[in-house]
């Protein structure tokens, strides 16, 4: 275990803990919409994407078909197209190895796996995601098998935890300067405006277009 991996592991623990609580909700909700416990657990093992898994449940629970649920997952995860692409040049190995390692990319990777020079560290990425992966799987098992005993985490306000994490990280980004703040404002406006007219996930993907402001930069140090 490299020091950077261990550092990533430590950085990932708070997100892993919050993810575990959220995953309990996922397990409970999956059972509510008629998914067997083993399927809920398999879902988390193979897909490992909170918002996308919730989106699939909401389609299935609303009477939508399997194809519609998969489309919901694809749209919700579409933001990982630009996010994972950003990691490409920082990952070692050939195309297949890079694509395999990029499976570890999650939302907070953009922050916790970042080097001071703006590139990304592979071991920080793997370590921080490992901590979150353990939390997500543990929570799913607990929710799917013991949900009735645990109760509804949403009543405890635990759904506010991840947006609060994101807000903390966002505020740190805003302090990087006026360019970052302007791009954040543009991203927020794009997402907000698209909410009523685009399916869930698309507003977030579209907001990433605000980062194209960086094309105006002449030098490597933006923000």
């Amino acid at each position: 275990m490299s020091p950077r991996f261990r550092e990533g592991l430590r950085a990932g623990v708070p997100y892993g803990f919050a993810g575990a609580l959220l995953a309990i909700s996922f397990g409970v909700l999956a059972r509510d919409v008629g998914m067997p416990a083993w399927a809920a657990i398999l879902f988390s093992l193979l897909v490992f994407a909170g918002s996308a898994q919730f989106a699939a449940l909401s389609v299935l629970g609303g009477g939508g078909g399997a194809a519609a649920a998969v489309i919901a997952v694809a749209l919700m995860n579409s933001r990982f197209l630009p996010i994972a692409t950003a990691f490409g040049p920082s990952l070692p190995g050939g195309p297949f190895r890079r694509a395999a390692q990029s499976q570890a990319v999650v939302d907070v990777s953009l922050i916790v796996a970042r080097n001071p020079d703006g590139s990304f560290d592979r071991d920080l990425l793997l370590g921080s995601t490992a901590a979150q992966w353990v939390g997500w799987q543990t929570g799913t098992v607990a929710g799917a098998l013991g949900g009735a005993l645990i109760g509804d985490p949403e009543a405890l306000g635990l759904d506010a935890m991840f947006p609060a994490f994101f807000l903390f990280l966002l505020i740190a980004e805003l302090r990087r300067g006026r360019v970052a703040s302007g791009v954040a404002a543009a991203g927020a406006l794009i997402a907000f405006a698209l909410v009523p007219v685009a399916p869930p996930g698309v507003p977030i993907l579209a907001a990433s277009l605000a980062a194209l402001w960086g094309l105006r930069e002449r030098k490597a140090a933006p923000a």
Binding site: L110, V183, A184, G187, A191, A211
Partner: peptide, 20 residues
């Protein structure tokens, strides 16, 4: 690189907005 550096603020802002 400049675009990558700006992905974080753009996406974090969008995640906060869509979640809350």
């Amino acid at each position: 690189e400049a675009v990558i550096a700006l992905l974080a603020p753009a996406l974090l802002a969008a995640l906060v907005v869509t979640q809350v």
